[in-house]
Design a protein around this nucleic acid. Structure first.
Length: 203
DNA sequence: CCCTGATTCGC
DNA sequence: GCGAATCAGG
């Protein structure tokens, strides 16, 4: 395999996306991660945070007040440390503003990163019917879970989610996954059900 | 042990 | 230019 324009383009794109060299190599095929890394360096884009898109600096001052500022002329050429990014205050717009609200206590909205599943991450144990023995077995296995974070998952780690994603008690099993499967043996057994036991029940 | 990128150096 | 081998780390 050679580095055709197309392949180089793919390489650049994926590298820019933060993909690992091995992932890129796998995507391209016919090359090893070493080849990818070597090419990356030759292309001179090894610096991930060079300055591809330093766009994040949106003028933090929409409309500066043109009031009579008694600020002394900015003779001081001292480099401004960093414009304090003012968190956009969530505007509280009430149609009926006559609320006897004493103190505006708005919830900070603790946005918890939702997992962008790159692959179909099947479900948590649902109301399925799993034999108590299997369930107990899984429970036991989960005690020994490696408790990996999303970023720590690889193709060889069990990706079974454990716990409540909305809390800190959330992690992934992380035990050695079955070859070709996304889960460890225990979780494979509960993940891939032959969908049989469910007899149609009339309603 | 699994993985990551960085570097070297014969080709 | 290429990339396997190796290095240095997590």
């Amino acid at each position: 395999m050679s580095w055709t324009d197309e392949r180089v383009e793919t390489l650049k794109r994926m590298w820019a996306e933060g993909q690992s060299a091995s992932a890129i190599a796998k995507e391209l095929g016919g090359v090893t991660r070493n080849a990818v890394i070597g090419k990356v360096h030759r292309l001179g884009l090894s610096n991930r945070s060079d300055e591809p898109e330093p766009a994040p600096a949106p003028a933090p001052e929409p409309v500066a007040e043109k009031k009579a500022d008694r600020k002394p002329a900015p003779t001081a050429q001292a480099p401004r440390p960093e414009p304090q990014p003012e968190p956009a205050a969530p505007a509280r717009e009430e149609t009926a503003e006559e609320e006897p609200v004493s103190q505006p206590v708005f919830t900070p909205v603790p946005r918890r990163p939702i997992v962008p599943a790159g692959q179909p991450l099947p479900p948590q144990p649902s109301a399925n019917e799993i034999s108590p023995e299997t369930l107990a077995s899984v429970r036991e296995v989960e005690k020994r879970a490696r408790k990996l974070t999303l970023m720590e998952l690889t193709e060889r780690t069990c990706k079974w989610p454990i716990g409540d994603p909305a809390t800190d008690k959330f992690w992934f099993c992380g035990l050695p996954s079955q070859p070709g499967k996304p889960y460890c043996e225990a979780h494979v057994s509960v993940a891939f059900q032959p969908m049989s036991s469910r007899r149609d029940r009339r309603r």
